[in-house]
């Protein structure tokens, strides 16, 4: 796919292809959906199978499960405070889904479902709706005071309120664009340098040595991408926590 016809084709990796034969084609079940199901299955497996011993001295899988749990719990409690524990399952589910999506996408032949803005924007809209509903449920009509700070002169209201509303609506957009852009940029770079390896390598004996250069770049990029994959899941979780903090404390 990469070097067919000696051109750099870095974007076809994001195309959706129906899987599971005619049934998948009929219901539009793409490889993206398959990878989502795979991620959910792996997460469930990690936590059900990993925690089955409930050992005091944890094994490898139990350690991994406990570390992820405690990591996200630290984020949620650190940002929202102790009453934020109620929203921990929500943030944890989001974090694990995004983390596994990013990490699975780095495996060969795998598809990164977080590289589609439809997926990330769907997740961000979910965060937006949950935080808004939480704020409305906790504060009722006082929630609308969020859009007009107390003590501001009343004649500024026509300016402040639209700006605050647009700023509030821009949250899911920035949340989804950040994750999607990071994943797309990383995968495009990987694909471009991988194509360089093939193109330069086809030049013969000289090409083999020349191809070592983009190969080295790709090795470094993969390490960087693993960092980005984790970091973006972390950023997604922490921004969700910050929005929940604003919804709970409302200032």
């Amino acid at each position: 796919m990469a070097a067919e016809g000696k051109t750099i084709d870095a974007l076809s990796q994001f195309e959706l292809v129906p899987v599971l034969g005619p049934i998948g084609r009929a219901v539009g079940f793409s490889q993206s959906n398959a990878h989502m199901l795979l991620a959910v299955g792996l997460i469930t497996l990690l936590f059900v199978y990993g925690m089955r011993h409930r050992a005091i001295i944890p094994g490898r899988l139990q350690s991994a499960a406990e570390m992820l749990y405690e990591f996200v719990e630290g984020v949620v409690v650190g940002q929202v405070g102790h009453e934020g524990r109620r929203y921990f399952p929500f943030v944890f589910a989001l974090f694990m889904f995004v983390l596994f999506g990013n990490m699975l996408g780095l495996l060969p032949y795998a598809f990164t479902y977080t590289s589609h803005i439809a997926v990330t924007f769907g997740l961000a809209i979910l965060v937006f709706l949950v935080t808004t509903v939480v704020a409305l449920a906790l504060h009722g009509r006082k929630f609308f005071g969020y859009f007009f700070p107390e003590g501001a002169p009343l004649w500024l209201a026509p300016i402040i309120i639209p700006v605050e509303v647009v700023s509030y609506i821009s949250r899911p957009v920035s949340l989804s664009i950040r994750l999607f852009a990071n994943m797309v940029a990383g995968h495009v770079m990987l694909k471009v340098f991988a194509t360089f390896i093939v193109l330069i390598g086809s030049l013969g004996a000289v090409g083999i040595f020349g191809a070592a250069l983009p190969l080295a770049v790709n090795v470094a990029l993969i390490g960087f991408e693993i960092l980005v994959a984790f970091l973006q899941a972390y950023v997604f979780a922490i921004l969700t926590s910050i929005y929940l903090h604003d919804a709970v404390h409302l200032h």
Binding site: V166, S170, V173, S174, I177, R178, A181
Partner: peptide, 11 residues
Amino acid sequence: GVEVVSALVVG
């Protein structure tokens, strides 16, 4: 950059 651009796009 993302914050500025997304607010501009939403507006």
